[in-house]
Write a protein that binds this DNA or RNA. Structure first.
Lengths: 214, 214
DNA sequence: TTTTGTGAATTGCTTCACAGCA
DNA sequence: TGCTGTGAAGCAATTCACAAAA
């Protein structure tokens, strides 16, 4: 077993996929799963699955496989999602509002507890009913981060505003940013960034379909 | 220069980022850009930029750098986005509707021209105004794919419906799928898949913030 | 000078293959 | 027998470093 730090980045990405599958297996009341079966469900080799998990400890039982509930808990703990955590979001356009309403975050232990927008006309608007979320003005961001001890922020603003928003988040104490704006953000090295550019994903497909075979 | 096939997968991903930055530079009327400057904007090394581009030809001018408009066109051609293309979407929940309204796709040459939903109550609803898009029933999918010669499909349905939708798409002739459902899809090897699991991205950040340092 | 394009060296990741345990 | 954990081997991607071009 290795201390996180030598863990390959692709391994961390797959950890989330293992967890997703384990949650499905657990819901179906499957008690154990082999690296072979887990790999097949995710289009990975059995060796890959074993090596990935071995970076964090010895969770398997030779001859049996992995115990589903146990491994599920362990992976959650590794990812840091064994406790619920609060998230804030900036930018309440179409995408931002869809993200606030997205049930998948809640299922995984993330709660979007605050939404902010630069546009004063949007401030005060209720943007989610279930847990009521109202749009706040940007200047309240630091106070909210402190009061709700928020470490994760989501950026859903246009490209030209994203860097400024990121700077505000970092100043306020946010440690990790999920960015949906189509720009590369520049932040301190101790701040984690994950970017999702929706158009980029379509371009990738375009390359595979038309680019490759020409 | 190499024929696509030996091109590393990460290189293809970065190609989209180069294009994004080139479009920004072009809009700012910057005429040339060095691999060093392009790399700095995207947090990549200059050698990485040069090597990536060299897989597809010799586009640079020693002592000068790359000519912005020229390289932009070339990268578009490599990605296959030099011509506009039609896209369909299945699943008109919050996320699906946000994706239909997303301007970023249009800017990059993709047009969501048809939306489908399993739920007959949603069929007929207008889900976009600008280019009017009405929700169609699933059984019309094959006909629409044929008539509008659509090759790209977006899946924005719940996890338990995603595989069925993917199967329908493939049967109808779709060649590439962008999947937002939190499941691994199993399709023929000649079908391209790109998956975006929003919760997975938050988990990755969680690991970097809490997982790594514990 | 400045900056590209590219072999060679290096680093990183995945697969192999098998000892050891249930 | 079935399956894990893991060194060793193999493959892939990145970085280095420098000749050649403007």
């Amino acid at each position: 077993m290795a201390k996180p730090g030598n863990v390959p980045i692709p391994t961390v990405r797959r950890l989330s996929l293992y967890l997703r599958q384990l949650e499905r297996l657990n819901a179906a009341e499957r008690r154990t799963i082999s690296s072979k079966a887990l790999g097949e469900a995710l289009n990975l080799s059995d060796a890959q699955v074993r090596k990935d998990l071995a970076y964090f400890g010895q969770f398997g039982y030779p001859g049996i496989g992995y115990r589903v509930p146990e491994l599920m808990q362990r992976v959650r703990r590794i990812l840091g999602t064994d406790k619920r955590s609060n998230v804030l979001l900036v930018g309440t356009g179409n995408l931002g509002r869809a993200l606030i309403a997205y049930r998948g975050f809640t299922k995984k232990g993330f709660e979007v507890v605050a939404a902010f927008d630069h546009d004063r006309a949007k401030v005060g608007t209720r943007v989610s009913a279930e847990p009521p979320v109202h749009v706040l003005p940007m200047d309240q961001l630091p106070a909210v981060v402190r009061r709700a001890s928020i470490r994760h922020g989501i950026i859903a603003v246009p490209a030209d505003a994203a860097q400024t928003v990121a700077d505000h988040m970092v100043t306020a104490g946010i440690r990790a940013i999920l960015n949906f704006a189509p720009v590369t953000l520049h932040v301190r090295h101790d701040i984690a960034i994950s970017s999702v550019d929706l158009a980029v994903h379509l371009e990738q497909l375009s390359f595979q379909v038309s680019g490759r075979s020409r």
